[in-house]
Design a protein around this nucleic acid. Structure first.
Lengths: 339, 339
DNA sequence: CTGTTAGCGCGTTCAC
DNA sequence: GTGAACGCGCTAACAG
């Protein structure tokens, strides 16, 4: 049943039916009610595809990750995706999630799904979660003119996005280090993640406040899996470190696991602090001290920025920069060394 | 730039351009190359929205969860969603994920996003993850005529879907119980989840094999969060049980946490087995014995079933039932009681 | 193998 | 406040 047959069936014009469903334009309240009721009765619903073509808008936002070729979609990104979906839904948009590994852009051949969709106006806007300037640049170039906002750990100023939401790790890391130092740690290590330049920098400054430095010996690359965290922990431990900040909770959980396996008691013999405050962090054994970011606010900020861009009549406004702060959540995995 | 101006610009017809991009129809190899090259040069890409309207197909599959009013999107469903997205992508489809809590179907007013999309042909097909017959029935009624396959723990035969993929928990649970009994457990408890009828039934039969029963005292309702698992563990422990199967790994992690807090050593004093084999299961302390399901195969089966339905020319075939089996993965959290 | 043409179903100016 | 007609950009028959 299309709008034409339906409208003639109930004796009004297609325009009236359209107005009744869209809420746009002017229409008598009773007319509207009538149309809607008849629609239910005759089981008519407007064709989404036709509406989209006519409106030149898909009502769908895309969520993408810039993480290289492999689909690194870990717990953190899943939890973030959830919040983004919520925010998009609240704003009246659907969400297209690209979870599958991006195909290697075969020379000359079917570009990535993202590129096809973006270039073909299949997406109204894009939220891009970046793990570094270069990968972000690449992905942004793929999306061409589609409005994009990027969620990032470090300012990406200069890249072609409509807005960026920068996660400010400094406050959380600062608080974590203050805490570790306060309970007596002096040799504090770091397990690195992917695209964590801002985290490392924040760590250095936080340490500097206490006259401490982060040397090479105290730094190990995760970079991402549980197992990476395990290995890195053992290396750090061997290096004489007594506490470690981990770039992600995943790495931290791996580190805790390695500690347990090695008979190292956390936090009596070693303190561990993660970053992300994933849902499971409060339920590991011991529970994981972590640096959290308000993912709901982060997602809302990104979506709001994107949607407001969409509303502006092509107003080539300068890219906006928003910032969300992090905070330290002390749990059992960090504390004083046992004397 | 639309296909018409582009085609005249390069001196071919719109049909030729369409053929070059879609791969459908017949077209000379060199013509095709030429068109594609010119498209790159002139920066033309076909409009996705117009293509969809014309094809009467969105190229998008929907993934939905039947979990009541609340958005219960836990780690299990996230990991599953990832596999479904991969499978969909492989099959050439995009995925529309509904992560946000479903709005209460306001009487008479904008139905759920799902209903609107489905009724308006905005989705080619739907994968529905069910947690029970009633909720599945409700959701299926919302999607009307859109082809649907459901992923479920128990057969939903009789409901209006194109195919169902039933997760068979029996083999995994059977193996887990055999294992627990073999190492000496006799009082085995169960921490229930949501919509876990099939799991409970499988547990009963597995116990029956050994002449054991699952009594009320040994059964506690989670039903879902880490904290639920903690509470339930303490109750079971008080009831004199020495081992427990948990309906999900989340519950199991909560139980382990409670055990650690209570100074109960796992598995020396108590054995715990989860279900789902989430990514973190191998990294808890102690590592979590669990019953796993091959999520990749599960997702592939569901998508394949859905896609093959779509291809059939409306062939009202009888709903197919597929089944994927589970298996037991013993880890540290289960073993003999210390003498 | 390529061009022509008629839809796909809805939004939205305009007149009334 | 409501109806008629054109346009959104592409695909698929059909003709050549």
């Amino acid at each position: 049943m299309d709008i034409r047959t339906f409208s003639s069936l109930i004796g009004v014009s297609t325009a009236t039916v359209s107005r009744a469903f869209s809420g746009r334009g002017v229409i008598g309240a009773q007319t509207r009610e009538h149309v809607l009721n008849e629609a239910r009765r005759l089981n008519f619903s407007p064709n989404v595809l036709a509406r989209r073509l006519s409106m030149q808008s898909s009502g769908v936002l895309g969520l993408y990750y810039s993480f290289g070729d492999e689909a690194i979609f870990d717990y953190y990104n899943m939890e973030l995706a959830q919040e983004v979906a919520k925010a998009a839904s609240t704003a009246g948009f659907g969400l297209h999630l690209e979870l599958a590994p991006r195909r290697i852009p075969a020379p000359n051949d079917p570009a990535t799904q993202l590129a096809t969709l973006a270039a073909g106006k299949g997406l109204d806007g894009i939220v891009l979660v970046s793990d570094g300037r270069e990968s972000a640049r690449t992905l942004l170039s793929e999306v061409g003119g589609t409005p994009a906002v990027v969620i990032t750990g470090e300012s990406l100023a200069g890249l072609p996005f409509q807005a960026q939401v920068v996660i400010d790790f400094a406050p959380g890391i600062r608080a974590a280090i203050d805490h570790l130092v306060a309970v007596g740690h002096r040799r504090i290590g770091y397990i690195r993640g992917l695209g964590d330049g801002a985290k490392a920098a924040a760590l250095r400054s936080a340490l500097a406040v206490h006259g401490l430095v982060l040397d090479e010996q105290a730094t190990r690359s995760g970079p991402k899996t549980f197992s990476d965290g395990q290995r890195a922990f053992n290396e750090l431990r061997a290096a004489g470190v007594t506490a470690a900040l981990c770039a992600t909770d995943i790495l931290a959980l791996g580190a805790i696991h390695a500690a347990n396996a090695a008979g190292v008691s956390i936090p009596r013999d070693f303190s561990i602090v993660g970053i992300d405050d994933l849902a499971f962090a409060a339920h590991t054994a011991p529970t994981l001290s972590s640096i959290g970011v308000p993912r709901d606010a982060l997602a809302r900020t990104a979506i709001d920025a994107l949607v407001s861009t969409l509303k502006k009549t092509d107003g080539e406004a300068a890219p906006a920069t928003h910032s969300v702060s992090t905070y330290f959540i002390p749990r059992e995995s960090s504390g004083p060394l046992s004397a």
